[in-house]
């Protein structure tokens, strides 16, 4: 427990808070990378996933892409891309976007696919246009899974941005990496605690947002019978199973 006390001492030492290499600027950087990449990834991934889910076209490509993304080691990917593009915030954002898109795509696509077919059929039969079906029926009903995709993508981005510390970019990962490199375990542990706290806070905020956004009446009983869930994606209520792909 002494180790934790040391780490906490480091965290609560006002001298470590500000300054160029302080906790606050690195936290801001970490959040900035995460927010920016998520914004870009959402703009790309969600409309694409909705398109695939609504039309049913490109379904196989999405399934293949999301399982491939799960198998690819993020650490290797980030190093490889940075070797080719050179160091910088730009390439980092590109890597983070690449990693965030598959879970978003899968969430949006599987969310739409999980919507009860007769409900959509009925919406069409009473005279909704395709747009109205998408906006007023499919998206609200798919919200839990769409949000699940957003949450797991965000966690993955926060985790991967931590590794960016290794290639010299700032962010909370720097404390961790510096600590490991200097064999200063107190510093590494402090960095780890910061990263964990950030991840948990962000996920909690997203969980609250999800409660606000997901319509009532959807939380239960929106989907098909459980035994219809398709391998190899297990149904994980509200969270798309890109599983711990956080590096």
């Amino acid at each position: 427990m002494n180790l934790f006390l040391d780490a906490l001492n480091f965290l609560f030492d006002p001298a470590n808070l500000t300054g160029a290499n302080g906790i606050v600027p690195r936290l801001v950087d970490h959040v900035w990378y995460t927010g920016l990449s998520m914004a870009v990834a959402i703009v790309i991934g969600i409309p694409l996933g909705l398109l695939v889910g609504h039309t049913g076209r490109g379904r196989n490509a999405v399934v293949a892409l999301s399982s491939a993304a799960r198998a690819l080691p993020t650490l290797g990917l980030i190093f490889l891309i940075i070797l080719y593009t050179g160091l910088g915030v730009g390439p980092l954002i590109v890597v983070l976007v690449i990693l965030a898109v598959p879970p978003l795509l899968a969430g949006a696509y599987s969310g739409l696919e999980a919507v009860n077919r007769p409900t959509i059929d009925a919406a069409r039969a009473i005279g909704m246009t395709e747009w109205q079906i998408l906006l007023k029926v499919e998206i609200p009903l798919a919200m839990p899974l769409i949000f699940g995709g957003i949450r797991s993508a965000t966690l993955q981005v926060i985790a991967t941005a931590t590794i960016a510390g290794y290639v010299g970019l700032t962010g909370l990962g720097r404390f961790l990496i510096e600590g490991l490199a200097l064999r200063d375990y107190k510093l590494a542990l402090a960095g780890a605690i910061l990263v964990i706290a950030l991840a948990l806070c962000v996920d909690a905020i997203l969980a609250l947002a999800q409660r606000l956004v997901v319509p009532h009446g959807v939380a239960r009983g929106l989907t098909r019978h459980p035994d219809e869930s398709a391998a190899p994606t297990p149904r994980q209520h509200g969270r798309v199973s890109t599983a711990p792909s956080n590096p």
């Binding site: 780490a7 780890a192 590096p247």
Partner: peptide
């Protein structure tokens, strides 16, 4: 499970020695 699953792996690798008494 959800909370544990949210923890970035590198951070967890580094935290465990302090919890388990293992070496880094």
């Amino acid at each position: 499970g959800g909370v544990l699953f949210s923890i970035p792996s590198l951070a967890l690798f580094v935290t465990l020695p302090a919890l388990l008494g293992t070496r880094i």
